[in-house]
Design a protein around this nucleic acid. Sequence first.
DNA 1: TTAATAATGGAAATCATTTTCATTAAGGAG
DNA 2: CTCCTTAATGAAAATGATTTCCATTATTAA
Lengths: 158, 158
Amino acid sequence: MPRRGCLGPHWWQGKFRGCGYRFTIGREVILDVLAKAEKHLSAEDIYMKVHPRYPNIGLTTIYRTLDVLSGIGLVYKFDFGDGRARYELTEGPRGINHHHHLICTNCKRVIDYTDFIDEEVELLQETEKGLSKKYNFKITNHLIQFYGLCNKCKGEAK
Amino acid sequence: MPRRGCLGPHWWQGKFRGCGYRFTIGREVILDVLAKAEKHLSAEDIYMKVHPRYPNIGLTTIYRTLDVLSGIGLVYKFDFGDGRARYELTEGPRGINHHHHLICTNCKRVIDYTDFIDEEVELLQETEKGLSKKYNFKITNHLIQFYGLCNKCKGEAK
DNA sequence: TTAATAATGGAAATCATTTTCATTAAGGAG
DNA sequence: CTCCTTAATGAAAATGATTTCCATTATTAA
C-alpha cells in the first residue's frame, strides 16, 4: 500500500495516473529524488539516492521509470557527451524551471543558466511556428546547448 | 604513399596537417566520404562507404579519425537519441553549411533545415556574449534541435 | 634511407542500457 | 475486504556502440 500520507499527494500524481500508469512506491521515490535534486542526474545517481529509501529497487526499474516519465513529459533526458544520459524534472515543485546548459568540452562540467531564456523562447516560438508549417512537423520540444571551455579549463594549454 | 594526385590536394589538408596530425589514406578517404555525403552518417555508415575504396580500414580507425576530426573542429558529432552518434562536416566544399535538425521522436527521422538560421545565429551571438562574460566561459559552439512528430507520425494514434 | 613515433586493425574489453522471464503488487470488480 | 487481471518489478543475461590493448605498419622529419 503506497504510503501516500507520508509524502503527501503530489502535484504530479494526477498527471501520472491520468496517463494510465500505476503509481508505485518505486516511482514515487524516484520522482521525489528528482524533485529534491533539481539538477541533472544519471540513472545511477538516481539509483544511489533511491536505494537507501527503498532498498529493493533495481537499476532496471530506474531506467524503465525514467523512460515512462520522459514519455509523459515529466522528465527531460539529456546527452552531455560523456556516454551516460542525464535526467531532470521538466518542472520543479514551485513551477516551471526552464533552463539551458553550458557544457565544458574539456572537463565535462555542466552549468545551468536561465539568463536570456525569455529572448530565446521568444525566438524559438517564431521558429517553431515557421518550421511546423513548412515541414508539416508538430514540434513538442527543443534543445539548446552551448559548448566551450569553463573558467578553469580556459587557462590550460589544451 | 598518399595518392594525392588522385583526389587532389584538398582544402582541409592544410588545417589537418597544421594541427600536427599525419595525413593518411584512411583519413583522406573518410574526409572525402563525409564531404560527398553532406549529411549525418553514423560511424558504421562511414565504414560501409569507406570500405569498398579502402578495404583494409578498420572500424576502430573510423572512430579514432572521427574523434580527431571533431577535436580539430572539422566535424560535428550529434546525438539524435537512437543510441548511435552521427557525424557531419562542419563545412562543405562550397563553404559554410550551417543547419539545424528537426527530430521525429516517433520514427527518429531527422530533417535538416536552414530556415531562420540567420535569426537564430544573431540571437545566439548575443546570448553567447552575455553568457561568456557572466560565467567566464569561452563558448566555441552551440547546438539547437527541435523534437516532435513528423508529418507521417502526426496522424498515428501513438 | 633511416630512425622515431604516430597510426592502424583485429580481438578483447567496457559499460550504459535493454531484454527476458518468473514473481510480485496495484487497483478495479464483486 | 478479497479476488483477479495485468502492469510493474528485479536479477541475470544479452545487446551493441564505442574503447582499449598491443603487436605491426606507415608517415614524416632529418
